[in-house]
């Protein structure tokens, strides 16, 4: 049995309905959701595409970053005055109102930077699903990628063509990033 390759059913930008029907048809003809992926130049939600919900750990990574920022701020507010105490303006060494300001800034800094790190790491990490691409996607085309045998089932081919798709066989993405 030949190794599966990535096929791409490419729809024009005004053919969103047809693209969603193609996803339904592929599923009906035995292509599982994990062997399918949609690429588009505009964000379409899973509900619109009729696809299973995506997941991400970005909020968790962001939350951990916020916690790290909070802990650093706690050290700066309450730890550093103990390392080198300086009495300023009659204030106590450790003061809650001023600590709130520093804590807020560093917690937000931790949250925002780690959110970005989360996006970066998840984007460059290897992902599941067929790894295909076509530059016409950034011109508004909607692509339905699916892994299948090199020779497509004739009924599948016919179904996709009826929906108006241009079918590209072997649509594996070339190296799009540095690594």
């Amino acid at each position: 049995m030949a190794r599966p390759i990535v096929h791409l059913a490419l729809f024009k930008e005004d053919q969103l309905e047809q693209a969603t029907e193609a996803i339904h048809a592929l599923r009906h003809l035995g292509v599982s959701d994990k062997d399918m992926s949609v690429i588009s130049g505009v964000p379409y939600s899973e509900k619109i595409l009729g696809r299973p919900m995506s997941w991400t750990r970005i909020p968790l990574i962001g939350g951990l970053g916020a916690l790290a920022g909070f802990l650093v701020a706690t050290f700066l507010n309450f730890g550093t005055p103990l390392l080198y105490p300086i009495r300023v303006g009659g204030m106590a060494y450790q003061t809650i109102p001023t600590a709130i300001v520093v804590t807020f800034e560093l917690t937000m800094l931790g949250l925002l930077i780690s959110t970005f790190i989360g996006v970066f790491v998840e984007t460059i990490s290897p992902s599941f699903g067929p790894q295909g691409y076509d530059p016409r996607v950034t011109d508004g085309h909607i692509g339905v990628l699916f892994s299948s045998q090199p020779e497509l089932d004739p009924s599948l081919h016919e179904t996709l063509e009826k929906l108006g798709a241009e079918i590209v066989h072997g649509a594996e993405a070339k190296k799009l990033w540095l690594f």
Binding site: I39, T56, G62, L112, T115, V119, S127, T138, W177
Partner: peptide
């Protein structure tokens, strides 16, 4: 562009991050 292809997962992550920001 970090190897952006415009997959559902990429859009989902981007929207989530933009919402947080």
């Amino acid at each position: 562009s970090l190897g952006w292809r415009g997959t559902e997962a990429e859009w989902f992550r981007l929207r989530k991050a933009i919402s947080i920001f």
